[in-house]
Amino acid sequence: MKKMTAPPPLTRLVQRAPMLSYSASNLLQVMTTASHELEDVIRLVKHDSILTAQVLRVVNSPVFAPLQPITTIERAVLYLGEKIIVGIAVADSAVKLLHTRLEGYEAKQGDLWRHDLFTAIASREVIRYAKNEIDAGVAFTGGLLHDIGKAIISDCLAGTSREVLYRIEQGVVSDYITAEQELLGYDHAVAGSELAVHWGLPEALQAVVRYHHQPELAPKEYRGLVYAVHLGDIIAMMWGQDTGSDGMQYQLDTRYTAYFEISPEQLAMIMLTAQDAFEEINQDFLPSKEAK
């Protein structure tokens, strides 16, 4: 497979991508600070009227069904938890990217969003089986953003799916991400991490996006977290929540056992729990939802 004649420079693709909102960016920063408090989250939400309205809409929806209507951000944040608040902020802010139809992967509109959300939930479930402590909020948010690079490189891959799959089947390339590298000179993980840097996301999230297919290469301090999202990503694909032609076309890094102890039965429970949460959350994250 030859490199495309002139794939656009990655910097141009990144600069063309929409910016993350001020609130989402700050919430992500706050979430990755170990010493942060719930008040920090409340303060940031209160300063964004659109986010405030969306949080109140979600908290009062039938899915979360409070006994009495919740009318203040303080109560909404307490009721939903900060992870869901960040998810709402990111989803609202990056809606255009996360809801992109990935033509280069022959995916339908909404597939990327559903895959990312399922990965986020599964990553959070996986860390219940971690040998060392991993922050659930960062794992969830990392899961939401791990494939953001696909949205910016997808158009460059249009019409290549069949050839890529043929080359993987023939053993010419080991997986989809290697094929992307061959075609474009960069891949969705590299593209996503460039965007994460451009957005000023915390280092932990940059590492998740960059190394979610090569967790062993992640900086040591984030490696457990990156493995969590690596497993969440694989679980989402196994569960049929994929992003089109690249579904299941990646390698599982079996060295995850250094960080997690998961039996087949526990994996099954992770999947069931993630599906339950996914069905609940997916209803209310996006205005234009398209549940599977």
Partner: peptide, 16 residues
């Protein structure tokens, strides 16, 4: 029943 390669067998849910 697709599977992802896992020598530890944990992820071979498709086969199971």
């Amino acid at each position: 029943g697709a599977s992802i390669m896992d020598n530890n067998q944990t992820f071979n849910i498709g086969k199971r």
